[in-house]
Nucleic acid binder design. Sequence first.
RNA 1: GCGGUCGUAGUUAAGUCGGUUAUAACGCCGGCCUGUCACGCCGGAGGCCGCCGGUUCGAGUCCGGUCGACCGCGCCA
Length: 577
Amino acid sequence: MFRTHDCGELRLDNVNESVTLSGWVSNKREMGPFLFMVLYDRYGETQIVFEDSKIIEEAGKCSLEDVVQVTGFVRDRGDNRTDRYKTGDVEVIAEEFILLSKSKPMPYDHRKDTAEAIKLKYRYLDIRKSEVKNYLILRHNITRTVSNYLDKLGFLNIETPILTKSTPEGARDFLVPSRITKHSFYALPQSPQLFKQLLMVGGMDRYYQIAKCFRDEDLRADRQPEFTQIDIEMSFADEDDIMGIAENMIREVFREVKGLDIPEVPLMTYAYAMNNYGSDAPDTRYDMKLITLDPVFENSSFEAFKNAANDESQIIKGIVVEETAEEFSKNKIKRIEKDVQSDGAQGLAFIKNINGEIESPLAKFFSDEEKNALIEKIPVNGTMLLAAGKKNVILKAMGNLRKRMAAEKNLVSNDDYAFVWITEFPAFEYDEENDKWNAVHHPFTDFDLNEALAAKDRSTVLSRAYDLVINGHEVGGGSVRIHDFEKQKEVFKFIGISEEEAKEKFSFLLDGLTFGAPPHCGLAFGLDRLVMLLAGTEAIRDVIAFPKTTSASCLMSEAPSGVTKAQLDELYIKLSE
RNA sequence: GCGGUCGUAGUUAAGUCGGUUAUAACGCCGGCCUGUCACGCCGGAGGCCGCCGGUUCGAGUCCGGUCGACCGCGCCA
C-alpha cells in the first residue's frame, strides 16, 4: 500500500497513529541530527521528521520533487505548530523511507514570476505546483454540477462527431484530410449546432454535452482555438422553459462552487442594453449609465451637438463620474480622449459641476436653459464626459469608456456577480460595405417572418435569441430554432442564401426538418469563460490543462509539426511553398 | 495580416555614455549546523548576452532583419 492518508489529511486526532504517506518532496532542511522534509500532493503538505541517523542518511540522498513514500507515526508538534499548512499541528516521525521516483532539478522556480513559455513547455509541473491545479479542480466541480443538474431533469449526455462536414460560414474550419475518400476533407466542429437539432428530430428530447469546439482564428487572452461549450438543446420548449432551466443550472453551479445564492436574473432588452450601457453584454455591477443628451442640445449654439441632436443617425451620449471634478486634469482628459478616439469617436468633451456652476471649455456656447438641464444631471463636484457622432460608434466608444472609468474608480470587485438576460436581439444588421442586411445569428434562429417581409426597415425585426451575461461577459447564448421546413426554406431565401447553397451546406439538417421536427430551442455556455469568471482569472490558459500559445502552438508537445512524405502521400497531399 | 512590450547562467533580474575577466539572488554540487519551515553559514561549478547580418579599432549595449513569448487590432458566437 502506497498510502494510508493523503498529504493534506492528518490532524491532531491522528496523533500516535501509524501512517504511510506518498508524495513529492517540496522542501528538505538538514539541521544537525534532524532532517525535516515536507511532502506534498494535490491535497496538501505534511512535515516529516527523520531523527534516526541511519534513516537520515537514506532520506538525505533524495532531492526536491523526488517521489517518496514514508511510514511512521503521527506526533503533535507542540510548541512548533505552524499554520503554514493545514496539517501544521502534527508531523510524521519517519520509521521507513522508500524512494519511489527521482526528479531532475526543477527547470524554473515556481515561486517566481516565470516566463510563460517555460511554464508552458513544462505544463505538467505548472499544474503540479501552481494555481492551475485549483482551477482544474474548480472546472471539474463545475462540469460535475452541470451534469448532475441536467441528469436530474432528464437531459441525456450524447456525443456528436468531431470529424464533421466543413461549413465555411463564420469562423475558419480546421480541416482533416480523408485517406479513404481521395481529395476530401472533414472539418472539426465549430459547435455541435446542426447535430443537436437533429437529435431533437431523433426524439432525444433533452440533450446536453460538454462539447469540444474548434475555430481556426487568432488567439486572445480569453480565446483558444479549441475550447469547450456546455451545449444544451430541448424539444417542446420555448424561451421561457430553456432560460429557466439554464438559469437554475447556473444558480446551482454558483451555490455548489461559491456558496452563493443567485437571485432571479433580470431580463433586459438588447435595445435597452445598447442605449444605457453601450454594449450587448453590460456589466451591471455598477450603474454609470450612458445618458442621452440629444434633447438638451436640440437648439444649441454649439453646432456639432446641435447637428447630432437633430440627426436620426447620430447621438450625443454622456457618462457621469462622481466626485472627481478636481481629479480630472487636462492631461488626464486628453489621455481618456485618446482611448475614445481609438474607438472611432471624433472627440471627447467634459463638463464639471463646481459647486453648482458649470465649468467646461464649451460653457460659452451653452444657453442658461442648457446649463440648467446639464447641472441637474451632474452631482456637485462631479464630471460628465460626453461625445457626439454616429449612433453605433458613440455607443461603443462610450460603453468602453464606461468600463474603463469603472475599472479606474474601482467600482468592480471580482467577488461580486451581476447577472442579466439580454433578449429581443435584432435579427438583422446592416452591412454598410456591401449595402445589404445580414442575419445576426445563425440562419436557424426563429423570428417573425411575416413581420420581416412587411417591414420597411429590417432593423426593427427581433429574433428569438437570448444571452446570459455575467459581469459584462457573454457567458451563454442561444435561441428558439426554426422547426418548420417551409419556414426554414423561406428564411434562407429571405436572408439571401440560395437554394443550392442551402442544400450544399445544410442538406442533412433540411432533410431532417421534413420528417417531423418538434419545436425546439437551445443554448450553449462557454465553459472556459465560466470557469475563468468563477476562478477570478483573466487568462483562458489558466483554466485549460494543456493550452496553446498566442501563435496556436503547444510548447510542450510541439504541435503543430511537419509529417512524413509517406503520410502525405497516403492522403494525396502535396505541399506547396 | 498589422501594432506594442519583452528576450543576458537552469530561473528571476542588474549591466551607466559603445571600452579590462558580464554581476547578484534563487536553484545545482561539496562541506558545516540540536526544531527547521523561502532555515542559516562557508566554498564551488555554471554564459553562443535568442538567432543572422551591419556600423565600429572595439557591440550584451547602436542599426537592419529574423525567430519566439505576451498584450491588443483585424479576424472570431
